[in-house]
Design a binder for these strands. Structure first.
Lengths: 351, 351
DNA sequence: GCAAATCAAGAAAACGTTTTAACGAAGAGG
DNA sequence: CCTCTTCGTTAAAACGTTTTCTTGATTTGC
């Protein structure tokens, strides 16, 4: 490590052997026949000189890179943090580095992120951000690197995808409330311009219908529409405000299914402020399981399985990258959410 | 984009020109003299064939790479999320991709992350994780790539560093409480095996001393020591438990300075459970400003300036990478925290 | 009208690997 | 003793750029 880095030639020179031999020894080339003493000598020199193969040169020659991209919407959202954490763990185990790109809730940047992925010559990508326009996405069809799309159908693009069964997740939440005896159940919805917002609302409606409960428009509160900039605005404050509107109804609901955990906590704030008790007076169920289990109150919710999804995405992606022939199944996987019952749901007060 | 990617030779062939000309045109080589029509023809062909230079080959030749590493302890901690978010933004603006490595509160992995950085040939690194042993860190001295260390002194390693003045941050919190009239102020400490834990405790003691207030050992609650695995265990539950112990004291404090916001919220839980009011009965101040401003209750805290630190780290690192001669100042920057007064502090009830 | 200067581009080396082909020496087979 | 394998290693090409050095053609200066 004197001037510049030590190259394979330096090693070869010191070990009095050809560079190719060094390379093949280091790469455990099975077809190489070499005297044990030579092999040992090479290893010694490698250790002693502190030789590390130049990854760039290797990549150029092998046309392989060990860098994969994960595109998210932002680091602060626990949804993405969980995905990143687990995808990164798997990638690391398998010897890959993840380059992370953030669209920052700006659709313009979705295209830029994809540019970067191609320009940087990454080996594959997990597309988790929802801020990638359809038109941008359409162009990935002709890219030759594997990709895994999250929460997006990817069949048409010839890529893999992992979807959550949000419809069923919402149903799970509703079944739980209904089985506790609730009949007046409200929903604080997410953006109705987003896939997730629509799916969870649909699950809400379907559950009502199955159990013969009436759909009451005033029981579905969207967060202040002005704030919904395509999915943004799911803050605790939004949940708080929506819940206040629900509490002001003549016949207020006995249970609330919130679009996500953050909104659910906002609803909790409003309820406590009105000096009502949870779950005795009103039950609250969230969605996502993005809050720590140590949070207060201990929120009943639906686990979105982000940890599993993150790990699985990395797994699938790397398998595809390493598939010999470059062929891989364009799988579409549907993950089932799970109900997590904690302390914010109970039978309604009338019983 | 038929078979394999289109290379500079393909472009050169199609534009009836030498590859070197294409290269120099694309890189806006000032010294190149070329006929306008040729230049235009090359650009046209580049566009039409969708040519993107192979980043790997370019890196090999120029001995430069546009990949920088950020080593964190985990994605779920908002402290790191904020740093990542802002460092990533700056890196992206300047045309860099950040590869993110996580030590996951495992000191063994700190060494591994550094290995990865060198093996991957990254251009530089921001070391934000606290789980990197001194012995591991010592080896970076002889690495030839720029690095920025966060919350660590790096002078001895010949690297740059950004430190928070946590001592002063703690003093800020204490001055605020004392100026409100509090005299019985407790501290829920972080791990006393960590730099941060010690510094904030020191700030707490110093402030007491300056104002002639007595130091009372029972007013300093460490979270359950068994849980402190070198800094882990700063959960909301820990704050809750520590606060319960404080509430059980004969003469309970009128204000609490918590090691961080998460612990502060745990303390809030305990106080509310005992049916005391915040801030009327007890004031709470946190540290970090890691919670959204929409959180409830609106926590008075000390802003750790993580956003600024993240951006600054990326800025300094990239400046160093791009410094012509490879020389750069081994700066040590000290960032001052700022007090953020919200709703959980008020004068003590006696007044 | 001729040397010198300028213009427009081409040729080739280099970056550090991996991989395939080639090679000489030693041993085997007859 | 000659040929044919096998063994252990070397030679060289290739990956796709960038960069330096030439080169041939045209223009300029006088």
């Amino acid at each position: 490590m004197r001037k510049g880095r030590v190259t394979i030639k330096d090693v070869a020179l010191a070990a009095e052997v050809n560079p190719s031999v060094v390379s093949r020894i280091l790469n455990h080339d099975k077809t190489l026949v070499v005297r044990p003493e030579t092999r040992e000598r090479v290893w010694d020199v490698v250790q002693q000189m502190g030789y590390h193969p130049n990854a760039t040169a290797r990549s150029l020659r092998t046309r392989k890179t060990r860098l994969i991209a994960i595109v998210i919407s932002g680091f602060l959202d626990p949804y993405f943090a969980l995905i990143l954490e687990n995808a990164n763990r798997v990638a690391d185990q398998r010897g890959y580095v993840v380059g992370v790109l953030s669209t920052e809730s700006d659709e313009q940047r979705g295209a830029k992120c994809l540019e970067t992925i191609f320009d940087t010559g990454m080996a594959g990508a997990v597309l988790a951000s929802s801020y990638i326009e359809e038109s941008t996405l359409a162009r990935i069809r002709h890219s030759d690197i594997p990709m895994v799309l999250l929460r997006r159908n990817a069949w048409e693009f010839g890529k893999m995808s992992i979807m959550e069964d949000e419809n069923n997740g919402a149903a799970l939440a509703m079944e739980h409330l209904i089985s506790l005896g609730h009949r007046r159940i409200a929903h604080i919805a997410g953006s109705l311009y987003s896939r997730s917002g629509l799916k969870r609302l649909e699950g809400y409606r379907k559950a009502l219908h199955i159990h013969g409960l009436p759909y009451r428009a005033e029981y579905v509160q969207e967060s202040d529409e002005a704030q919904w900039k395509l999915g943004v605005g799911q803050t605790r404050l939004d949940g708080y405000r929506a819940m206040l509107r629900l509490l002001d109804l003549d016949e207020r609901p006995t249970a609330v299914f919130a679009f996500n955990d953050t909104i659910a906590l906002g609803a909790v704030d409003a309820i406590l402020e009105r000096e009502l008790r949870i779950p005795e007076d009103i039950s609250i169920i969230g969605y996502g399981n993005t809050m720590s289990e140590f949070n207060f109150p201990k929120l009943t919710t639906v686990d979105g399985q982000m940890a599993r999804i993150g790990a699985l995405a990395a797994e699938m992606l790397i398998n595809a990258i390493e598939s010999e022939n470059g062929e891989y199944e364009h799988e579409e996987i549907l993950i089932q959410p799970e109900l997590v019952v904690r302390k914010t749901t109970a039978p309604p007060p009338e019983l």
